[in-house]
């Protein structure tokens, strides 16, 4: 099962993910169509400030999702095809028990129906083999769509390389500072 992962170091707070999310959840699914729609389409990902960093917060589609357990109407369910946690708007009574138990603030409110609003991982896109809109829109690959095991494997290899470098006495070069690192160091004096 593929998940959306975030590399906080690479997030520049450009909010391209927010715009792409709203467009994907619009009627026209085009930027120039979406900006003229009423009601205006809503984003399900929120780029929030975090110390000198920024972080796109969205639903993590937890395996043991408390929002599903908390919903009194069975409106919050797991999609059998995509595995995503999704809202059935017809069943949702707008009590926001789901928002209360969510540890990530990933559930907001639909301006039009006053029901729960959250990331659905773009089922229309997944159906045709495309990654979620936010992932595709991210210009720095801070958002990636991949298997948990692949992410873990990549990190294991990186950890192993660091150990090997240390043991072999090779100089362990600190990763070269990017412009964004410089900016963060200035802001975080």
């Amino acid at each position: 099962m593929k998940e959306i992962f975030v590399d906080i170091e690479r997030c520049t707070a450009c909010k391209a993910c927010e715009i792409a999310c709203a467009v994907e959840h619009s009627a026209t699914k085009t930027l120039f169509g979406a900006v003229f729609e009423s009601p205006a389409p809503q984003k399900r990902v929120h780029v929030e400030p975090a110390l000198v960093y920024s972080y796109p917060v969205r639903c993590l589609h937890c395996t043991d999702a408390p929002c599903i357990a908390a919903c009194p109407n069975g409106a919050m369910t797991r999609d059998s095809v995509t595995g995503s946690v999704i809202v059935d708007e017809d069943r949702c009574q707008g009590c926001f028990m789901c928002a209360m138990v969510c540890q990530f603030g990933a559930i907001s409110v639909s301006a039009q129906t006053r029901t729960a609003l959250k990331c659905d991982r773009c089922p229309d896109r997944l159906a045709v083999g495309l990654p979620p809109a936010c992932v595709e829109a991210c210009p720095t690959r801070a958002l990636v769509f991949g298997e948990e095991e692949d992410l873990a494997s990549e990190k294991r290899l990186s950890a192993a390389a660091r150990v090997a470098q240390a043991v072999s006495g090779a100089a362990v070069h600190p990763s070269s500072a990017t412009p964004l690192d410089t900016l963060r160091s200035l802001r975080g004096y």
């Binding site: 997030c11 520049t12 707070a13 450009c14 909010k15 780029v47 929030e48 400030p49 975090a50 960093y53 920024s54 210009p139 412009p179 964004l180 900016l183």
Partner: peptide, 11 residues
């Protein structure tokens, strides 16, 4: 907040 990194970096 947060403000866009591309804008801040001029890129």
């Amino acid at each position: 907040q947060p403000q866009c990194g591309f804008g801040q970096l001029g890129t």
